[in-house]
């Protein structure tokens, strides 16, 4: 990490999508937050809140309209390749190449991230073992189940052992067992000092995983802090109640905190 910044530092980030007949949609309305090493930061929000757009901007897949963001000290607009080298990005729109096997995908991404020879082979074996993929490593991805594909996707994103992980609803579509395994894996990663930013709309998941939370609605960050801080600020006892309280307040025209 450069210059002692937080692993993710977002300042006044804004994204406007142009629409037909000159109409514009503000998907992200000048949000600011940060996420440190060894921390899981959860972005909570209903569908269309701007979670995926925020994460896509941080992953350099979209250009922000204004504002800045640093990932592992690298500017997302100026140093996109360095940013990509520093992060693991996973979302429902990052599919797997169906005709490649799990091992081939890991090798391909590893090679592109600069690994060579025995170091690459060793890392591929390590990830296959870590995510329990040995039994289907040689099977083309198009023949894998949803849970298996998710494991390959996680393996693909962490093959270069990046310090920052950005995950967009990582347990979406998984069964209870696979989702629990994924959560355990994220906890282990946090304990190893990774900075993890992830989005979800499953309250229980956010409660059990996140060190800090940000509640996003209509592109704006309505509250952020630890679980206790958010509950205290909203005067509620459960995260779900706090979430509903904030969303209803936002509909009544209150200003984000």
């Amino acid at each position: 990490m450069r210059n002692g910044f937080s692993s993710i530092q977002v300042s006044s980030l804004r994204k406007i999508f142009p629409g037909p007949r000159g109409q514009e949609t503000e998907a992200v309305a000048g949000i600011s937050f940060s996420c440190k090493e060894g921390e899981i930061y959860g972005l909570l929000g209903p569908n269309g809140a701007g979670k995926t757009t925020t994460l896509r901007i941080l992953a350099t897949l979209l250009h922000p309209t204004s504002g800045t963001a640093l990932v592992h000290g690298f500017d997302i607009a100026q140093e996109s390749i360095q940013v990509r080298k520093s992060l693991a990005f996973l979302s429902s729109t990052t599919g797997l190449y169906p005709r490649l096997t799990a091992r081939e995908i890991l090798e391909f991404f590893g090679r592109l991230f600069g690994m060579r020879g025995s170091a690459l082979t060793q890392r591929v074996e390590e990830v296959l073992h870590l995510l329990d993929m040995d039994s289907f490593a040689h099977v083309p991805c198009e023949k894998l189940s949803t849970g298996m594909k998710q494991r390959v996707s996680i393996g693909r994103s962490i093959i270069h052992d990046p310090p920052v992980w950005i995950l967009d609803e990582p347990t979406s579509g998984l069964d209870v067992l696979a989702a629990a395994k994924t959560r355990d894996f994220l906890r282990e990663a946090r304990n190893r000092g990774k900075c993890i930013l992830f989005s979800t709309h499953i309250m229980s998941e956010a409660e059990s995983l996140c060190d800090r939370l940000g509640i996003l609605h209509e592109g704006a960050l309505w509250a952020q802090g630890s679980l206790e801080e958010i509950k205290e600020a909203t005067g509620t006892r459960h995260l779900e109640d706090a979430f509903l309280h904030l969303i209803r307040n936002s509909s009544e025209g209150e200003v984000p905190t």
Partner: peptide, 14 residues
Amino acid sequence: ERNTWETTLLLPVP
């Protein structure tokens, strides 16, 4: 359609 385009764009190459 296969959702692999974003995966490809995440590669650390121009």
